[in-house]
Design a protein around this nucleic acid. Sequence first.
DNA 1: CCCGGGTATGAAAACGTTTTCATGATGACA
DNA 2: TGTCATCATGAAAACGTTTTCATACCCGGG
Lengths: 332, 332
Amino acid sequence: MTVGIKDVARVAGVSPATVSRVLGNGVVSDTLRAQVEAAVRETGYRPNLSARRLRSRHSQTIGLIVADIRNPFFTAVSRAVEDAAYRAGLRVILCNTDENPEKEAMYLRLMEEERVTGVIFAPTRRTVEQMAETSRSFPTVLIDRACQRSREDTVVLDNAAAAGVLVEHLYDRGYRRIAGLFGNASTTGIERHDGYRAAMARLGLPPAAVFIPPAAEAAEAELRRRTVDAGEALRRPEAIIASNGLLLMGVVRAAGETGLAIPGDLAVAGFDNERWTELVGPGITVIEQPVEAIGRAAMEMLLDRIDTPDAPVRKLVLNGRCIVRGSTAKRT
Amino acid sequence: MTVGIKDVARVAGVSPATVSRVLGNGVVSDTLRAQVEAAVRETGYRPNLSARRLRSRHSQTIGLIVADIRNPFFTAVSRAVEDAAYRAGLRVILCNTDENPEKEAMYLRLMEEERVTGVIFAPTRRTVEQMAETSRSFPTVLIDRACQRSREDTVVLDNAAAAGVLVEHLYDRGYRRIAGLFGNASTTGIERHDGYRAAMARLGLPPAAVFIPPAAEAAEAELRRRTVDAGEALRRPEAIIASNGLLLMGVVRAAGETGLAIPGDLAVAGFDNERWTELVGPGITVIEQPVEAIGRAAMEMLLDRIDTPDAPVRKLVLNGRCIVRGSTAKRT
DNA sequence: CCCGGGTATGAAAACGTTTTCATGATGACA
DNA sequence: TGTCATCATGAAAACGTTTTCATACCCGGG
């Protein structure tokens, strides 16, 4: 039925071993090589990757486990990872966890069963803490999220510094009552909150932060509670920082719906330079993450780790870039 | 080294066959089943999926080949496909072709080597035409793009109708000089252009359409050429239709940069209800595609096709929904 | 008490490769 | 000319499963 290496061998008049050597650049005489190549074309042979992986004992495959591919940050990173993997001759298995620790566990198990050579992983807070205890059969590089005592290679943003930059930028522009909305599912929310808090303290301002689920709706509800419902204009924030693209979108939408002008009634700044932030209203001031660099670096680290499993753990911290737009114009 | 089914069998005091039966819900007595399950836990056994796929001769895997996962349309569809596949116990291999026919060919070859049970594919114009001639070892469902004489199951939008709706909507709102920007890489551009052209003819208006590469930059350049550089206001379009999210973004950005007010100087409408279209300026009028339905339907069709390979070919045509926003307000 | 027919189990073959090992040919060198 | 590497090739084992086939067992009916 389906043509295998034996059929090719028969057609070429050689042994299966020789065909295998031609396919996998072993040493074969030119004459036989030509015969085999002709036979491959003639038979329309396609190697069976499952068999190949089983026998050769390496899968040439890595796993990429992220929260949700619909998040532009993860799509961009995943493209960078895939392109790098492709160049290295590796296949990528992409998994969406929806920030659900059970799905994370399930996919980690799947990675073992696929015998992947490595995994790039953006874990939830809960899972990142458990990772030290359980052991895995493959090297892992954490991206975007990690904690101090993670025993894996990581590549993350300098979240605290970036949040500080936003706070100071708002301060420079004349804003004082600066509120913060932070996601509660990942470590990035915590770190960005830390940076926010530290910067506010440095400037002698009282912090006003809240942790919410990473969804636009949550941000919308929270903003409504803080502004419209709050009533007294004095207590309202003059500016607000959102710790990721989703929350930022919620803030902007809520502002539009409740008739708050940006930045007249409320200055807005956030994380993730998504394409809409450039287009909406006066443009939204954001911290741009070096998404390509993150993906590339993660892949590089993983390859290094595969080469030298016992090298010391590396943590790469990249800096974000603050893109100033109209949403944080000087306070009048 | 790594624990296999034989090790489990030894620990459980049974034969490998029995272990296999326990794992794959064959018939096993309760006592032995319990012993095996204990042994599995004790040894930390993880099945080897390559071996399983090789022997059982089905990969439980489908391919999903799209142009670029960074395009929100494809991310949304791919999530829907993945979720449906996951429910059906199938794994998904995701591939980005960047609208490059060579990459398409390469990934189709890869799919054969992976012995996938089926593929969901959004092909370029060039490839869709060649598909009739070459044969593949797996059933294929085309999404988003297809042509009349495609011999595969397809699920697409009623592109011509949707474009007609936009034209008529603009006409109703008082616009007459309605230009069109269409992507030149996929069949959707052609079909949307056809619909545009037909609607313009029906209304007795002269069409003014152009095909450009599917990139925001191309749309930007084109719009500049048509408006700023054109000079004479009389020849400028009053409204413009963009045939996908990327082009639409280019138009909006160019309008912003050249100081054209939307819709005062230029009404704008397009395809793909991306999140930013709701937020930017007065909101952009768009055709929303039923992305979830497309993904789910494609998966369903593929499963049906796998079950009954000889059933007649099905073509599912879904309708878009026109979401009217401020960018096409009544002409003053 | 014997026979037929299900049923649970194990032994061994098979899946399509890569890899190891043996072998025969070739050539260099003494 | 004989010996010893070196080399290209083929035979066969191995990878970790599932599946087929045979077998031993149990039970009911004659």
